[in-house]
Every structure is written in structure tokens, then in C-alpha cells.
Nucleic acid binder design. Structure first.
Lengths: 336, 336
DNA sequence: TTGAAAGCGCTAACAA
DNA sequence: TTGTTAGCGCTTTCAA
């Protein structure tokens, strides 16, 4: 049998009786080489069990065709579909995708930015609103970054997002048109932009209907199941009345519903609930959850497209806005 | 202000009036350098806005301290906690983690193995039972691989797993002791090892109780919500009687429950259900799901520890077996 | 404690 | 169409 150990391009060249340049060409530009020569090279490669060293290649090319997808919290399945979208267009273009976890921590965002500056990856797709302030101070040192779903104030980067104000307004309107007036908003992490925009949509829908925004009905959360539970617990302990909840994630909606049930209130009979995202389990939940669908896969695709654009030298910071859709299922009932 | 563009170690050396070796030493082995020299170097680094090029470093070191975590299906949140565990011990040891999606496709596993052979990463943590047969034929060419949760027949690799036979047997025993005898098993992807082992546990529990295994009660699935739905639909359409379901994932359990509800059967009153994994939503589901808890985070931690071991030259293929636990909640009721 | 210099594996500019 | 060769940025050996 053949050699077991890592060989290099020089050994292959020697074996095939050609130069290293010809080996490279046989591999990278097959048609710049005579077919017979190519044959010889390929045979030698096989015989030597040669596998090109990607590190050497990246080094030489000063690019490793890798992109980091940095998410707010990797425990949230929301990002799984985003990843799929990113990976689809990345792999078409010969890029790899590394997924990173920011753990809701600006410091870790900084660490990942450094990874790109150190050339561990060519670019960063950022899916968190947190951003290290010290880096904001020196925008000239920023590596290629694309923002997805979120926004970083005070910095102008290619972005793909959703119209959160409109989406949220539509959801709350739906609740209002079902007769609800005491509507809780389990918000995201305020004052970040997603959370603020959705709060704004909530406010707008309320105002349209002549309902005053009550601060005691707005409870921020971190998008987790537990945050939904905690919000309901807090409301009930404080003795606050409400007939509906608009939550800024499906997880929080589900946490809320589960906690309501513990306190003897069933959805939608006693309380109506709308979530956000349309996660895979939303439809399998009991009751099937009315929610705002986000085009996650498409968001991922567009974000990666923007990144490729940026990496190809195009540097106009585009903003792409995608459509959401209110998916009506069974967690909202009329209120009188 | 300082230079904006990428500088290299030579420029820093020149600025500091030292050799490149001294710059490297100041960075990598601070105490092999006189404090004053170090100061000078650090000042120069700052002034030049120098960021070491990780690619060059990896190339030189022939290692990039990166590990690929390749999962069966990245759409499954099961792997999120695994990732967290892997990432925890990886980052402690200075490794990065790249997550890859095998999409239930042996070909894609082969592609990722090639990535490691090409030195895109130092090792591969494999979380799928699929494996390209052509690679099995040349085990000498295998890069560092650790298996987690699954098993690849005919190949001897460091592995961290769970006692699937025992876990599954315990779950089915619980159903039997609640009076159930017509127990469906929504299995995993047969004939892969996880699925076979759990089926074996199911068989053992049945046999102990003097119940014959009926093939029409065993339905394989791919661990997804839809697979759970499909299984129930198939059973009902075929007019097969059953009073309990043991599913090989929480998603399939939930899919099954949701589908049962559509057909007017409520859990646990009409049908009892046990899942597998204890995903985060299992406890927030209605009814809260009785399930087999897998120590996912710990599995990830151990897998990465095994990998570090392997990468440090230790090559005895250890097998680590972790404990599961039957978590009793509300989806099982007595049957008479 | 420091410096000089070789070289990791590959690609591409240039020459033949 | 093919070969020669410089060099990417870093680390490390060897010598001073």
C-alpha cells in the first residue's frame, strides 16, 4: 500500500516528475495543464496519499474562507435556522461557517472580533445587540462585519433585519381587535434595539386604540422559557390584572403559558398569548401558538450574501428588510 | 493616531529596535525577555496596532487549535447543550469549536473528515452513526476522531455515551408498571446503534414482563417532531390499538402528543407518553413530559476532554459511559 | 538575554 | 505548457 503519512506538494511533484507549480495548477486550474501531465500528477497524488494542507493555503492566500456566526445565546434554537441559511449560501461560495456564542456578553463579542482581526476567519456575522464600547471608538479597526436581526447603535454596518415595529404592532392590534385592553408585553432585553422596536410597535397599537401604555405591564426578559415564567409570576404576585400577553419570543410565550397553567389560568380561555419567531415547536405546543413568523432561514441567507458582497470589496452598507407574518393558531381568544 | 492597517511582526521589531524573535518571545514567553525590552516591544505593538496573524501561526505550528463538532442534524436543539459542554472545556484549553451539520448524510461526514485531514481543524467530534464506508477501509488515514452519544460499528474510537439499553428498559418498565401492555416504540434511525440499543432495552423490558414484541408497534423515526406525528398517524390509520408510546426523542414525543390531540386522544388520560433527552421545553410542555434525561452538557465536556487527550498523543481509545435518569412528570397515567 | 536565519506548504509572478 | 523562485508571518534553533 501507499504511504500513510502526510506528504507535501514537493513530494508529489518529485513523484510525478514535474514542478510544484504544475501540481498546484493541476489542482486549482486543471485546464492550464496538459491532460497527460494532469494524469501523472493525479496518479502521484493518489500514490502519495497527498491531501493539500489548507492551513498553508489559507496562509498563502491571506484568507481562509471562513465566517463566524456569532449569536446572542447559542442555547436558543432560534439561531439554528439562521445557521442553516448562512451555511447554505456559504458552502455554495466555498465558505465555512464557525458558530460562536456571545452569551449575552459584550466582552465575548470583542473576543470574536479579535479572532477576525487575527485572521481566524474572514468575517463576522453578528446576531446580538451587545457591542464593546472600546471598539466603537476606533471604527477604522473593524474587520468585515454584517449584522443580522439586531442593530448596533452608532455604527453603520450592512444589516439584514425585520420590521420589528410593524410586526409587533400587528400582533398587538390582533389582540386589541379580539377585545383585549389589558395587554402585557414580555419584552426583550431593553434598551437594545430589537426590544425597543417591538416595544414601540406595542405602544403604537395601544395608542391607536386609545389605550395608555402602562409601565407595570411591560416586563423585560432574555427570550428564555424561564423569563416567560418569571414575568407571569411577577405579575400574579403583584396582583396585576391582564387578559393577554404579547411575548417577544416563543420561548417566553411558552414559559408564560406553562406558568399560567400552574396558577390555574388556561390559555386561551382565561388569557390570550402571542409569541414571536414561530419556532418549530410553536405548532406542536398545546395550545398551538399564535405567533409572529420570522423568515429565519432567509435572514441567514441574506446575511451571508451581504458578507460575501462585503468580502468581495463592496463596502456600501446595505440594509435589507425582510417580511414577517402573523400566524394565527389557537392561543388567542376573544375577550369581553 | 496610529497606523490603521495590518502590520506584521517585522515592523514591530523594527519599531522597537529588536529582532522578530524577541517580539515573539515577548508575546509567547514573557519571562524569557528583559522587562525593559518587553516594555519596548509592547509599546511598539500598540503603536503599530499589531495583531498577530493567527493563520501564519497555525501554519507554522501545524495546528490551529480548532475542533469540529459534527452533528447528525443541526436543526435539533439537542446538540446545543452538547456544544456548550464542548465549548467550555475547549476554551479552557485554548481550542475553538466549529459546528458542522452532517444532515444525516455519510457523504457529508466524509467531507468533514477531509477537512481535518486538510488541517482545517485538529480533530473531529462525531455525533452521528453514519460513516462513509470507503474511509472505514483505510483506518490508517483517519484523523483524530472522538465519538459522542453514538457509535460507529467496526471502528474503535474514543467514545462518550450513555447506557441506552438500560435507559430505555427503565422507561418501558415504568410504562409496564403503570399497567400498559400495548406499548408503541417510536424508534430512532434503525439500524444505527443508538436506535438498536434503545430498541433492545424496550425488548428486554417487554420480555421481563412476558409481553411479546410486536413489530407493528415499532416505528422508526428521525427524531423530529414530524416523525412523531407521522408515527401516530400511521398507527391510527392502520387501526392499531395502543395505550402508551415510548419515543426515542422528546421532539418525537411532542409530535406524537400533538397528533394524538388532533385525533381526539388526550395525554395522559387516553395515551401515556415517555420521551427521551429531557430537552428544555419538556417541562414547559402540556402535559409536562415524562422523559429520560441525558447529561448533554457533561457529554460534551467529556467528549472534548477525550479529544484533548487524543490530541496530546494519548491514543488508548477510552469509552466513557454516563448516567441517565428517568424524570417523571405528567405524561404517564395508570392504565387498567 | 538577544539576534540571525531557516523554513513550515503553498501560490503566483515571471521567465523560458 | 511548464519551471524557477520569492515570499506570505510566524516560530525556533543555534550561536553569540
Amino acid at each position: 500500500m501507499s504511504n500513510e503519512q502526510a506528504s507535501n506538494i514537493r513530494q508529489v511533484a518529485a513523484l510525478a516528475g514535474v514542478s510544484t507549480a504544475t501540481v498546484t495548477r493541476s489542482l486549482q486550474y486543471p485546464d492550464r495543464v496538459r491532460p497527460e501531465t494532469r494524469e501523472k500528477v493525479l496518479a502521484a497524488i493518489k500514490q502519495a496519499n497527498f491531501v493539500p494542507n489548507a492551513q498553508a493555503r489559507s496562509f498563502r492566500l491571506q484568507s481562509n474562507r471562513t465566517v463566524i456566526l456569532l449569536v446572542r445565546d447559542i442555547g436558543n434554537p432560534f439561531y439554528l435556522d439562521i445557521y442553516k441559511g448562512v451555511e447554505e449560501v456559504a458552502s455554495e461560495a466555498g465558505y465555512k461557517v464557525l458558530m460562536g456564542d456571545a452569551r449575552n456578553d459584550a466582552g465575548r463579542v470583542g473576543a470574536h472580533i479579535d479572532m477576525v482581526r487575527q485572521k481566524h476567519a474572514d468575517g463576522l456575522i453578528l446576531m446580538t445587540g451587545q457591542f464593546p464600547t472600546e471598539i466603537l471608538a476606533q471604527p477604522g479597526l473593524l474587520p468585515p462585519i454584517v449584522i443580522a436581526s439586531e442593530a448596533v447603535p452608532g455604527i453603520d454596518l450592512p444589516t439584514v433585519k425585520v420590521d420589528n415595529v410593524a410586526a409587533s404592532r400587528e400582533a398587538v392590534r390582533h389582540l386589541i381587535s379580539s377585545g383585549h385592553r389589558e395587554i402585557v408585553h414580555v419584552a426583550g432585553l431593553l434598551p437594545e434595539s430589537i426590544a425597543s422596536e417591538r416595544l414601540e410597535g406595542y405602544r403604537q397599537a395601544l395608542t391607536e386604540a386609545g389605550i395608555d401604555l402602562r409601565e407595570d405591564l411591560v416586563i423585560p426578559g432574555d427570550y428564555s422559557i424561564d423569563a416567560g415564567r418569571a414575568a407571569v409570576r411577577r405579575l400574579i404576585e403583584a396582583g396585576i390584572r391582564f387578559s393577554a400577553i404579547f411575548a417577544s419570543s416563543d420561548e417566553m410565550a411558552i414559559g408564560a403559558i406553562s406558568e399560567l397553567r400552574i396558577h390555574g389560568r388556561v390559555v386561551p380561555k382565561d388569557v390570550s398569548v402571542i409569541g414571536f419567531d414561530d419556532m418549530i415547536f410553536a405548532n406542536a405546543y398545546e395550545p398551538p401558538l399564535t405567533t409572529v413568523r420570522q423568515p429565519r432561514r432567509e435572514m441567514g441567507r441574506q446575511a451571508m450574501a451581504l458578507m460575501i458582497d462585503r468580502l468581495s470589496g463592496n463596502s456600501t452598507p446595505k440594509i435589507i428588510e425582510l417580511e414577517t407574518e402573523l400566524v394565527i393558531r389557537c392561543s388567542v381568544a376573544p375577550h369581553d
